[in-house]
Design a protein around this nucleic acid. Structure first.
Lengths: 142, 142
DNA sequence: ATATACATTATAATAATTCTAAACTATTGA
DNA sequence: TCAATAGTTTAGAATTATTATAATGTATAT
């Protein structure tokens, strides 16, 4: 049984048709040990260069958003100029390396639960996210 | 003494020439009781509509970035499609109202100090920011 | 098999931001 | 004071990320 069958089933489960492009993207995104953080551009590069597959940019956008809507991917706000996505869709926090522009998950055990003592009236909390910006220690860059 | 003198001095202090446009923007941004959160677009609207002043969009971008570089403004990452800025440049946290797209400062007393137990080796922490997304309580929107 | 609804694609459109180069202005110092 | 110069503003073009469009292609249920 090829590894793809797995993804075909998973896609079907959430109501996404298992098209060639979606299965291919699943392979890139979810055949991994660790969480994967990427921009749309990263993904297009990986598919076209590393996998030598032709895929339309629009399809990558469509598919990433379809995955996001179905809970396969999560968008992370770090940079106002690019969208970052994360294959770890659970609530968790991040380091952002300002030198390399890399996102790194913060281990659950390495941060205490955030407690907001006063909420805005009439509003409910949808999410609490911490972003820790880090940079090289031996340079004095902003 | 007109209130502008204040800003002319302040601009000079950080090495920014007190041009007409910069002083005007200071008035809009810093003549306030409370922290002000805005997008470039908000600012252009305020200047052109409320103040009935002609200012180039490029100048607003230039000037906001000049202010940011000199520590008068701080950029906040919430949305990948727009840049938000904050007149409160100290380290602090935010609510983001997903209904109205408004940013609201979290009072220092309403959140405990965030403690990161394990940092990335060779990196120093530049900032720790919490973003709490809230939305209307009586609707079941994402 | 085939109709149908959904996907993919190339390309155009849009939106936010940055660049460019010419005109303008604050500052410096003769 | 006033010209030189260094930095600023401006309109518009260019760039970049993203979304829309409409034609073609494909998965799925009957």
């Amino acid at each position: 049984m090829p590894k793809n069958c797995n993804f075909i089933e998973k896609l079907r489960e959430v109501g996404l048709r298992p098209t060639k492009q979606r299965v291919k993207m699943c392979e890139v995104l979810f055949n991994r040990e660790k969480t994967f953080h990427f921009t749309i551009n990263d993904l297009v590069k990986i598919i076209s260069e590393k996998m030598n597959e032709k895929i339309s940019l629009a399809t990558v956008y469509n598919t990433v958003h379809a995955f996001e809507k179905k809970g396969y991917l999560k968008e992370i706000s770090i940079d106002s100029h690019k969208s970052y996505f994360d294959t770890n869709t659970s609530a968790h926090h991040h380091f952002f390396d300002e030198d390399t522009h890399q996102l790194i998950d913060i281990d659950k055990n390495d941060i205490d639960k955030i407690n907001i003592k006063k909420n805005i009236s009439g509003k409910k909390i949808n999410s609490i996210e911490v972003l820790v910006r880090v940079a090289s220690d031996n340079q004095n860059q902003k």
